[in-house]
């Protein structure tokens, strides 16, 4: 195992160096590469949430795709409506014979509603779901299985309601966001910087949260839920709050991803993508916020390189990597950087 702890004199400056590189990226990268990087950063925002619930809360969620999707579809609905001439329907609705907009589409014409929905819908959905499960004291593997069922149900629902969701093909062909053309010069850089800022903001906020008494209690409940309960705490609201925060981050990540990728579809949010999200974090290091971001970037970079050349190979490679990390490197890449594998 390479011992990177020798590099420790670099440690205090490393975050600032990375931040400077991040800010400068639009001047150095092609717009294609910049867009790719922005997408991966959006995924990094979701990955931060998994560190909170999985690493520190011991709550394995195989359903983060659902919340990613809620954020993604929220912004997609808005962009679909914004680009639409008055009185017309999105093309896929016309093709499936609909004559009017579903009532729940209409408020998404408003930018303010859309922004609120991107944040609140995943957060509230996550809180409700987590409360329903945790207050019955269901946890561990059962919880993971229920979240997987949730992501399956969500993707199935979207596919089955082709006429209002765009079905399997999802929603695509966006041209503008809040009045700014997506292809106008400078938009790509601006959206990239916004993504970077949100990623950094989420990172700093979670760092604070994990160091607070809330973070301490979350770890305590992970390691000894009964001890915590019999010290007089009710662990349920702590776990529900953590899950809701992770769902919110997934939703924000999903909205930004949709913006950069120009598409949201069931194939990006279903069972397999939800598992991949856990794999990024397992590889990067589930206890480490920085590790999770690095994991999301590296795995997606690798995916991009491998899956375009050998699409079938990717799933196997990812599976193998996951097993390797979980069995031999429970702290992921962050563990190597800290000089301890276990």
């Amino acid at each position: 195992m390479p011992d990177l702890s020798r590099l420790s004199p670099l440690k205090p400056v490393l975050p600032w160096l990375l931040l400077a590189l991040g800010i400068a990226a639009p001047f150095a990268l092609s717009s294609y590469d910049l867009n790719l990087l922005a997408r991966f950063m959006a995924m990094g925002i979701l990955a931060l949430g998994l560190v909170l619930i999985w690493g520190h809360g011991g709550i394995l969620s195989l359903g983060q795709g659902v919340f990613f999707g809620l954020g993604g579809y929220a912004i997609a609905l808005h962009m679909k409506l914004a680009d639409l001439p008055a009185g017309e329907l999105p093309d896929f609705m016309v093709w499936s014979g609909r004559e009017s907009l579903p009532f729940w589409w209409t408020p998404f014409a408003s930018p303010a509603f859309t922004l609120a929905a991107i944040i609140l819908v995943p957060t509230l959905a996550g809180a409700l779901f987590a409360w329903a499960v945790f207050h019955r004291r269901v946890g561990g593997t059962y919880f993971a299985l229920i979240t997987q069922a949730l992501s399956l149900a969500f993707a199935t629902l979207i596919i089955s309601r082709q006429d209002v969701t765009g079905g399997f093909n999802g929603l695509t062909d966006f041209y503008s966001i809040f009045g700014v053309g997506l292809t106008s010069p400078g938009t790509g850089s601006m959206l990239y910087w916004i993504t970077l800022a949100i990623l950094c903001g989420a990172f700093v906020a979670l760092r604070w949260l994990l160091a607070s008494r809330f973070g301490i209690l979350l770890r305590a409940a992970r390691d000894g839920e009964n001890r915590v309960r019999f010290l007089g705490y009710n662990p349920t609201p702590f776990k529900v709050a953590a899950f809701a925060i992770a769902a919110m981050l997934a939703g924000i990540g999903g909205a930004l991803f949709t913006l950069h990728a120009g598409v949201v579809s069931p194939a990006l949010i279903g069972v397999v993508p939800s598992i991949e999200m856990v794999v990024w974090v397992a590889i990067g290091g589930r206890y480490s916020l920085a590790g999770a971001i690095v994991g999301a970037l590296l795995v997606n970079l690798a995916r991009d390189a491998v899956s375009s050349a050998f699409p079938e190979l990717w799933l196997y490679l990812m599976g193998a990597l996951f097993i390797f990390v979980v069995t031999l490197l429970p702290r992921g890449l962050a563990g190597i950087a800290k000089g301890k594998a276990a």
Binding site: S212, R213, F214, Y233, N234, F238, A241
Partner: peptide, 9 residues
């Protein structure tokens, strides 16, 4: 021991 009172150091 209420959860929202734990948001601090």
């Amino acid at each position: 021991r209420r959860w929202w009172k734990s948001l601090g150091t």
